[in-house]
Computed example of a mutant assay.
Amino acid sequence: MRDHAYDAVSFRLSEMEHRYGPNVHILANPFLLSQLAVLSAKTTQQPAINQLVARLYADLVTTVINAEFPRKQMKVPTRMIDKNPRGMLLGEGIDPETRAVTVNIARAGTLPSQVCYDLLNHLIEPRLVRQDHIVMSRMLDEAQTVVGAGVGGAKIGGDVDDAIVLFPDPMGATGGSLATAIQLYKEKVPGKARRFVCLNLIVTPQFLKRITAEHPDVAVYALRLDRGMSPPDVLATVPGTHWDLESGLDEHQYIVPGAGGLGEIMNNAFV
């Protein structure tokens, strides 16, 4: 005896309309946008900063799990099973045998990756969950313009065969760091991943252009799109309509309106 209403549980993203392609998901979530606005505010200080980042990533990774992770039929005896044979929970849930890897891109990605890692360990078999670590830094030219990202070190704990690989990095500015990190996994880490997913709090049009061009197979989930350096007429259009004219970066490649350098303020280390 089962309730067939839960045989297949549908999940629909609430996301912003845009023209960036089917792998880009800019969430339309008033609660999370309000919390992100508090995080971005000039007056917000520690410990609220890291508390907000952790809270936002708990919600963001939950959304990604609902949208991207495979499902499996559950069969769970509830506390009522001893009193009634119908005390059996049947229905669709997340497959606990899913392999998952979350990648800490130090330093802004350290706390977000830990949040994702801890949550995944509560949901799927812990033996199938891993956290890797990559140290990266921006590469600048003589004019202090970002020209790429360099890998300073990595601690990668195994292959990624059939794993969903998550890159929780708060600020998607130029896309250099994440594009480099994804390429590292594709070229140097054994196994074929099931899916690569970027989890960002804020992204720019430039970030989306680089990721979708260099890694068209990668999914991007973001809470907010910032294109504040775009011309006024472009800001009046659906995002992505005039992609080449959109900009969310100032002359130093910081996001506008943005939230400042999260790697700096999250660690209280302004170097």
Rank of each mutant, 00 (worst) to 15 (best):
Y185M: 09
Y185H: 08
Y185L: 08
Y185N: 04
K186S: 04
K186I: 07
E187T: 13
E187I: 01
E187R: 11
K188P: 00
K188R: 15
K188N: 12
V189E: 03
V189G: 04
V189F: 03
P190I: 13
P190C: 11
P190N: 14
G191R: 12
G191I: 11
G191Q: 12
G191P: 06
G191S: 13
K192G: 07
K192Q: 14
K192S: 09
K192R: 15
K192A: 15
K192H: 09
A193K: 07
R194H: 12
R195E: 15
R195V: 02
F196C: 02
V197Q: 06
C198I: 13
C198Y: 02
C198Q: 12
C198G: 06
L199C: 09
L199T: 02
N200P: 00
N200D: 08
N200K: 01
N200L: 01
N200H: 11
L201P: 01
L201M: 11
V203R: 12
V203P: 03
V203D: 08
V203F: 08
T204H: 05
T204E: 09
P205W: 15
P205M: 15
Q206S: 13
Q206G: 15
Q206C: 08
Q206H: 11
F207A: 12
F207C: 14
F207D: 07
F207E: 08
L208H: 04
L208W: 01
K209P: 00
K209S: 14
R210H: 04
R210D: 00
R210I: 02
I211Q: 01
I211C: 03
A213I: 00
A213R: 12
A213D: 09
H215C: 06
H215T: 04
H215K: 06
H215V: 05
H215P: 00
P216C: 08
P216I: 09
P216R: 08
P216G: 06
D217T: 11
D217C: 04
V218A: 07
V218D: 05
